[in-house]
Lab assay of single mutants.
Amino acid sequence: EEPWTQNQQKLLELALQQYPRGSSDRWDKIARCVPSKSKEDCIARYKLLVE
């Protein structure tokens, strides 16, 4: 798996703010905001960050 770039991390953080918990299809929308990362990548990264 490719490491996360600073840019991808920033895009993930912005998308998390844009689509708060409870948004419909939240992770699909977030993944579309982060180039070359899947929905599963984004969820895994999020879990890593909040632990």
Score class of each variant (00 low, 15 high):
residue 4 W to Y: 02
residue 50 V to R: 12
residue 42 C to Q: 02
residue 45 R to Q: 12
residue 26 R to F: 06
residue 34 V to C: 03
residue 39 K to H: 03
residue 25 D to M: 09
residue 26 R to T: 09
residue 19 Y to K: 01
residue 47 K to R: 08
residue 51 E to C: 06
residue 31 A to G: 05
residue 32 R to S: 13
residue 23 S to F: 09
residue 13 E to M: 05
residue 11 L to Q: 15
residue 41 D to L: 04
residue 29 K to M: 13
residue 12 L to W: 07
residue 31 A to W: 03
residue 20 P to W: 03
residue 31 A to D: 00
residue 45 R to L: 03
residue 35 P to H: 09
residue 2 E to M: 15
residue 51 E to R: 13
residue 1 E to T: 03
residue 34 V to S: 00
residue 9 Q to C: 10
residue 25 D to G: 10
residue 29 K to Y: 08
residue 38 S to C: 06
residue 43 I to T: 03
residue 18 Q to C: 05
residue 20 P to A: 04
residue 36 S to I: 09
residue 41 D to T: 00
residue 7 N to P: 10
residue 25 D to A: 05
residue 38 S to T: 14
residue 48 L to K: 10
residue 31 A to R: 03
residue 50 V to K: 15
residue 10 K to P: 00
residue 33 C to T: 08
residue 5 T to R: 02
residue 20 P to N: 02
residue 18 Q to R: 10
residue 22 G to M: 11
residue 6 Q to T: 13
residue 9 Q to F: 05
residue 28 D to A: 09
residue 9 Q to D: 06
residue 10 K to W: 08
residue 49 L to E: 11
residue 5 T to A: 06
residue 10 K to Y: 10
residue 8 Q to V: 01
residue 45 R to K: 10
residue 28 D to W: 04
residue 50 V to W: 14
residue 49 L to H: 15
residue 20 P to E: 04
residue 50 V to L: 12
residue 24 S to Q: 11
residue 25 D to P: 04
residue 11 L to T: 11
residue 41 D to G: 06
residue 46 Y to A: 13
residue 44 A to P: 03
residue 11 L to E: 08
residue 43 I to P: 00
residue 48 L to I: 09
residue 43 I to H: 08
residue 26 R to D: 05
residue 43 I to Y: 15
residue 47 K to G: 10
residue 22 G to T: 07
residue 47 K to H: 14
residue 28 D to I: 10
residue 10 K to C: 10
residue 37 K to W: 00
residue 11 L to V: 09
residue 26 R to L: 05
residue 16 L to M: 12
residue 31 A to F: 01
residue 21 R to A: 13
residue 10 K to H: 12
residue 16 L to F: 02
residue 9 Q to H: 08
residue 30 I to M: 00
residue 28 D to L: 08
residue 14 L to Y: 14
residue 36 S to F: 14
residue 42 C to A: 02
residue 32 R to Y: 11
residue 50 V to T: 11
residue 38 S to E: 06
residue 8 Q to A: 07
residue 26 R to E: 05
residue 27 W to C: 01
residue 38 S to R: 08
residue 46 Y to H: 13
residue 39 K to V: 10
residue 10 K to T: 13
residue 24 S to G: 13
residue 41 D to K: 05
residue 40 E to M: 10
residue 45 R to W: 05
residue 3 P to S: 15
residue 42 C to V: 07
residue 48 L to T: 15
residue 21 R to K: 12
residue 50 V to A: 14
residue 9 Q to R: 09
residue 6 Q to K: 10
residue 24 S to H: 10
residue 36 S to M: 07
residue 51 E to L: 03
residue 13 E to P: 01
residue 30 I to T: 02
residue 7 N to I: 06
residue 28 D to N: 12
residue 7 N to H: 13
residue 18 Q to D: 13
residue 10 K to Q: 13
residue 34 V to R: 00
residue 23 S to V: 12
residue 47 K to W: 04
residue 16 L to C: 07
residue 51 E to S: 04
residue 3 P to I: 15
residue 17 Q to W: 05
residue 29 K to E: 13
residue 29 K to I: 03
residue 12 L to E: 01
residue 25 D to F: 04
residue 5 T to N: 11
residue 22 G to E: 13
residue 17 Q to T: 12
residue 19 Y to S: 01
residue 29 K to F: 07
residue 41 D to R: 02
residue 5 T to S: 03
residue 14 L to C: 12
residue 3 P to H: 15
residue 47 K to S: 08
residue 36 S to H: 13
residue 47 K to P: 04
residue 22 G to D: 12
residue 42 C to H: 02
residue 41 D to V: 02
residue 42 C to T: 07
residue 6 Q to F: 06
residue 13 E to R: 07
residue 9 Q to E: 15
residue 11 L to I: 06
residue 7 N to S: 14
residue 24 S to Y: 15
residue 15 A to R: 00
residue 47 K to I: 06
residue 41 D to S: 12
residue 36 S to N: 07
residue 18 Q to L: 10
residue 1 E to C: 01
residue 12 L to A: 02
residue 4 W to G: 02
residue 23 S to G: 13
residue 46 Y to C: 08
residue 26 R to W: 03
residue 6 Q to S: 06
residue 15 A to H: 01
residue 1 E to G: 09
residue 39 K to Y: 01
residue 50 V to H: 14
residue 25 D to K: 04
residue 23 S to Y: 11
residue 21 R to P: 11
residue 45 R to Y: 15
residue 47 K to Q: 05
residue 35 P to S: 07
residue 10 K to N: 07
residue 26 R to S: 05
residue 14 L to E: 10
residue 42 C to Y: 00
residue 15 A to Y: 01
residue 40 E to L: 09
residue 35 P to D: 08
residue 23 S to K: 06
residue 27 W to P: 02
residue 36 S to D: 11
residue 28 D to M: 07
residue 3 P to E: 15
residue 1 E to A: 01
residue 17 Q to G: 09
residue 23 S to N: 06
residue 5 T to Q: 03
residue 26 R to M: 03
residue 24 S to T: 14
residue 4 W to H: 02
residue 49 L to A: 14
residue 14 L to W: 09
residue 25 D to Q: 09
residue 6 Q to L: 11
residue 11 L to S: 08
residue 4 W to C: 02
residue 42 C to W: 01
residue 16 L to W: 02
residue 36 S to G: 14
residue 9 Q to T: 12
residue 50 V to D: 04
residue 32 R to M: 08
residue 9 Q to S: 10
residue 15 A to C: 06
residue 41 D to I: 01
residue 15 A to I: 00
residue 38 S to G: 08
residue 3 P to C: 15
residue 7 N to V: 08
residue 46 Y to R: 04
residue 18 Q to G: 03
residue 19 Y to E: 04
residue 24 S to L: 13
residue 14 L to P: 02
residue 12 L to F: 05
residue 21 R to F: 11
residue 30 I to F: 00
residue 34 V to W: 00
residue 49 L to Q: 12
residue 9 Q to Y: 02
residue 38 S to L: 03
